[in-house]
Amino acid sequence: MEEESVALQRRSKRRATLDVAFHGLVLMATAFALIALAVLMFDVFRKGLGWLDFQFLVSFPSRIPERAGIYSSLTGTLWVTAITALFAFPIGVATAIFLEEYAPKNRLMNFIDINIANLAGVPSIVYGILGLAIFVRGMMLGRTVLAGALTMTLLVLPIMIITSREAIRSVPSSLRLAFLAMGATQWQTIRHIVLPASLSGIFTGSILTVSRAIGETAPLILIGALSFVAFVPRSPLDEFTVLPIQIFSWVSRPQAEFSNLAAAAIIVLLIVLLSMNAVSVWLRLRFEKRNSK
């Protein structure tokens, strides 16, 4: 009897130690990621902050670091992102609605499902090759904003479809059925029930997806986006460069000042990304408040 309780005690002690050890392990993993991020941010801000001013935002690239800026690459990034959103959002949401609300459950649809999921995992450079073949050479768009944005659209579409579908799926079917039972058509149900209830999720997903495209470099390098552009694109058919390419081009310059410029450009890129994420959080909070009323 006594022996048994000693054994029990020992076992529970061992379990407690294991518990503490595991806690420590996951804490360390988290700390590792956070410290790496902190070091990275510290380095970027230390090098870049001194170079960041309004002049930097509205100057073109230059061989003289003091004169150089990101006007052409920042506007290029905004152009590409906006046009990507313009194409990807309607196509992505419409596809999601079709797949969730209209599509029959059969083998073909199953096949399409699997393919979309696979496409979401395809490395971005593969989309660059596709973009080069179809948009730049096939459709003769050249190395333009439009070609870049269409390539990015291909890249973000699968993820946009998947996140939109998740949002649509999360609308309780009791709501749909109730509305249908009152004689509404399917289109009316989608418009008045499904979309309003899922819009916050769709928006959050879409903005996060598009902001992923902002950081992409590989596909744009492949379709031939340029490293030196000293004018601002005036239409989707102008040539362009984007922030990540400008950063890449500065980092590989021999003079040390250019790596500081790159750091400053990284800060701007982070600000653009964070503000897009902030918009998506704000939208979600707003919709949630509304829906809970």
Partner: peptide
């Protein structure tokens, strides 16, 4: 809100093409 979001995205692009850039060096 939908309209607001789209306006935001478009105005970001519009900033790109309209805001007065300084002449090149």
């Amino acid at each position: 809100l939908v309209v607001a979001a789209f306006t935001l995205i478009l105005s970001l692009a519009a900033f790109g093409c309209t805001s007065g850039g300084k002449e090149s060096t």
